[in-house]
Design a protein around this nucleic acid. Structure first.
Length: 550
DNA sequence: GCGATCAGCT
DNA sequence: CACAGCTGATCGC
């Protein structure tokens, strides 16, 4: 959760991701993405009043963020005060002091942050120097090098300060499997289930927040099955998402929510209450995206963990891991860095100390901080009214070496580890060189591990301990169900006959499914085909009743 | 009645 | 397994 106060020392008249208290006095507002903890005060009457009294005040964000924000009626009043800025399009903004009549121009560039739809980082350039506010982000190691606007003249820009998403800035979160690895694991699990029969459905237990959309679109694309959501209006102008989601409950992949969803799922019901038209009980598995991390370098990661008979956790993170943060910051090499988030159980000083080690070092008389050069050209500028006032499409000359990885500053890093080396996360950095002139602590050797109590290895003996009795008088919940949630009888059968009509009938065994069980209890019907080696699904004996829904 | 804050619970 | 946000209780206005 962001604890950033909203303002940066270098540009104190801007407010970012906080809109309460002193931030109300800002000359311009910025929203990095649409998560509530970055929107504090954004719908407060005090801010509404402030807007109505000013001709100049604008909220700057990405076009997607604007779309999402304005979909919510609570934020509709922003309609005339939002200036969407295209991503990766340097844009000039005039900050006007309406009382003093003074004006200051800054250049802002939105960089894709990989956190959720519309999420961006803000790169500010102006009299306060070059400052990067990351918002929340997840970039894989090496991705900073591909962000054009972090560079100039083939080199990384001279960035004085970074305001950084430090959610996982703790060696405990040393490594998180990549987006692709996680997605592949989930795809295989989903695929191995939904192909068994039309009655095999998956419930993705996603939090009520943006950021899972690429999961939905990829699953839908792969299996030709749209994902059921409670509402879609926020995606109405995003066809690339809209095509893959649906409000039709008659589908095999669900990410719908219900306040009592755990009750539903325990009773073998989907949160939306959907059932098969012919009364055949659905076979539901739940997959809960969670952050799973690895304190040590391990060769093969389990990105899926089975927690009970029909419940799985799948690795999923919208924040960069410790390694990714380190890579990002080491590449940017700012003079100073501020933590936007205090990771659980860490003090600000501890985080600061870690971050400092990734920043630019004071090495003797090497030029440490060069003043900002002349600003280059920009494509488009906004007047204070938020209207694009000019267009200058010619930016190509700025970055003709686009495909060449820009050269980093040659600071503080002696051979044999030249600064231009791009390290892969797996490279063994700690063995290959003398300590650099500026000693950089490494965290590779940390002994911390989340593995000890996780028991992620397959435990066939316990894996079937899932028919344990319900903790409570669960008998009151009949699978066939309470009548209140059902409305119209869905034409389940015909729906799927369009899609595929063979193969599944023979799979419709009457026994209860035992998923991914390696045990030989004789009732196992579900196993990931040969691909299980690459999926890294592990079983974990359920600690509780075996009927947990998370 | 509304908003802010916090505990509790995913 | 730790992110993001909901619900409900409490308090102040």
């Amino acid at each position: 959760m962001s604890s950033f106060g909203g303002r940066m020392a270098e540009y104190p008249s801007l407010s970012i991701d906080r809109f309460d208290r002193d931030n109300l006095l800002a000359k311009a507002f910025f929203l990095s993405h649409c998560h509530k903890d970055h929107m504090k005060g954004l719908k407060a009457p005090a801010l509404q009043r402030r807007l109505e009294c000013s001709l100049k005040l604008r909220l700057y964000c990405s076009p997607v963020t604007k779309e999402i924000l304005l979909t919510s009626s609570k934020y509709k009043f922003w309609e005339n005060y939002i200036a969407a800025i295209e991503v990766e399009t340097p844009t000039q903004i005039s900050l006007v002091d309406e009382a003093a009549g003074k004006k200051e121009d800054i250049l802002v560039t939105l960089l894709p942050a990989g956190h959720c739809p519309g999420s961006v980082m803000f790169l500010f350039e102006g009299m306060g120097g070059t400052v990067l506010y990351t918002g929340d982000f997840r970039l894989a190691s090496g991705e900073a090098a591909r962000l054009e606007w972090l560079h100039s003249g083939g080199r990384v820009k001279d960035i004085s300060t970074v305001y950084l998403d430090t959610t996982f800035c703790d060696p405990r979160f040393y490594q998180i499997p990549s987006r692709e690895e996680c997605l592949n694991g989930i795809m295989q699990l989903v695929g191995s289930w939904v192909t068994l029969s039309p009655y095999h459905v998956v419930w993705l237990n996603c939090k009520a927040a943006y950021g899972y959309e690429y999961l939905f679109t990829n699953l839908s694309e792969e299996f030709g099955i749209q994902v059921h959501l409670n509402k879609l209006d926020m995606f109405k102008n995003m066809p690339e998402i809209l095509h893959h989601v649906t409000m039709d409950r008659m589908t095999q992949i669900h990410a719908c929510r219900h306040p009592k969803e755990d009750y539903f799922v325990r009773a073998n019901r989907l949160p939306c209450g959907n059932i098969a038209a012919d009364g055949t009980p659905l076979r539901i598995i739940s997959i809960k995206p969670s952050t799973m991390w690895f304190a040590e370098r391990i060769k093969r990661a389990n990105v899926i963990v089975r927690t009970s008979e029909s419940c799985y956790r799948a690795c999923f993170s919208f924040h960069s891991s410790f390694t990714e943060i380190k890579d990002f910051l080491s590449y940017i090499q700012p003079v100073t860095v501020h933590a936007n988030v205090l990771p659980m159980g860490k003090t600000y000083e501890e985080v600061k100390e870690i971050l400092k080690s990734f920043c630019r070092k004071d090495c003797g008389d090497e030029a440490v901080y060069k003043p900002l050069g002349k600003l280059k050209r920009w494509r488009q500028s906004f007047s204070n009214e938020g209207v694009p006032s000019s267009t200058d499409g010619d930016i190509d000359g700025l970055f003709d070496d686009y495909h060449v990885i820009p050269v980093k500053r040659a600071l503080c890093v002696p051979p044999p580890s030249p600064p231009t080396d791009r390290r892969e996360p797996d490279d063994e950095v700690l063995v290959n060189s003398e300590p650099p002139a500026c000693f950089i602590p490494e965290f590779h050797d940390c002994e911390e591990s989340n593995e000890e109590d996780e028991e992620e290895e397959i435990d066939g003996a316990n894996a079937e301990e899932t028919s344990a009795p319900r903790a409570s008088g669960g008998a009151g919940q009949r699978a066939g169900g309470t009548a209140s949630e059902e409305t119209i009888a869905p034409s389940w059968h015909s729906f799927f006959q369009r899609e595929r009509d063979e193969d599944w009938e023979r799979e419709m065994a009457p026994h209860s499914p035992k998923l991914f069980s390696d045990s030989e209890d004789g009732d196992s019907t579900h196993s990931i085909p040969s691909s299980s080696q690459s999926t890294h699904i592990s079983e974990r004996a359920s600690q509780g009743s075996g009927l947990e829904t998370e």
